[in-house]
Amino acid sequence: MSNTIHLTPTGEKESTRVAYGKALVQLGGENDRVVVLDADLAAATMTNAFRSAYPERHYDCGIAEADMVDIAAGMSTMGLIPFCSTFAVFAGRCYDQIRNGVCYPHFNVKFGFSHAGITLGEDGGSHQAIEDLALMRVLPGMTIFAPTDANETLQCVRAAAEIDGPVFIRTARLPSPVYEPHAFEVGKGYVVKDGADCVIFTTGIMLEHTLEAVKALGEKGVDAALVTFPTIKPFDEEITRAYAKKCGRVFVVEEHSVIGGLGDAVASCLCGSGSFVFEKIGINDCFGQSGKPADLLREYGLSGAQIAERILQAK
């Protein structure tokens, strides 16, 4: 299939938030309309690299996320392409500004929101966004990316600048494997591994853990397909239906609440399309807590081995 990608590990690990910072520097060199806004987190969202490279194009808004978003809205009306950068958990804090200030008038503002999911780690549940995809999915006109690795992050950032309208890019703090550059098109899901017995749909940095699950399942004689979605919205319904129908057993794995995220995007897509075994494997309607990322993944059942076990147990 044209939407199959072959992932070749580079052996490197890098977080998608670090990649976001580097991507902005690259984009900044290609497009002088790009400006970057921060809410006193440039050292964490990694936009400090952009600030060093293009100090005249970096604006700190102080610890005032709502103000940052509306300032970006205003700047976009002057022909600029603002990238707002903060933690994904603060999507809720500036949600009205994203909704009414940016999405309602369809202004050209980008949101690079990092530290998403429980793999944020030690800062704990107050800072672990498990609801950001749900919040963004319901906004008309919003494009949503959740890149898997560094190279995909660069492509998402580039694509965001090309799109005329709001774009949300979800990135993570935890370093994840970097693969050689591979195909990326807005709105497409990609088959990482074909399979016949079941399909795993995933997004973002959970790819690493679902790959482990696929391997473990293979050792048990289960031939699992794996499809990753760097774009959550617009959602690739075609590949979702095709693989659900092909495999019959559907599992969605994400570092997000089982409510409102990729799992619900898949469920909405498949509803009425047939009869499937279907399970959402994510954060089960609870908040996270402090801990090391690997411990947290195990605590919430998202390690590769646990994902595989859950799929094997599914009725």
Partner: peptide, 12 residues
Amino acid sequence: SIAVGMALGAKH
């Protein structure tokens, strides 16, 4: 806040 962004964008 949007007006502040416009004014900042205009300066920029």
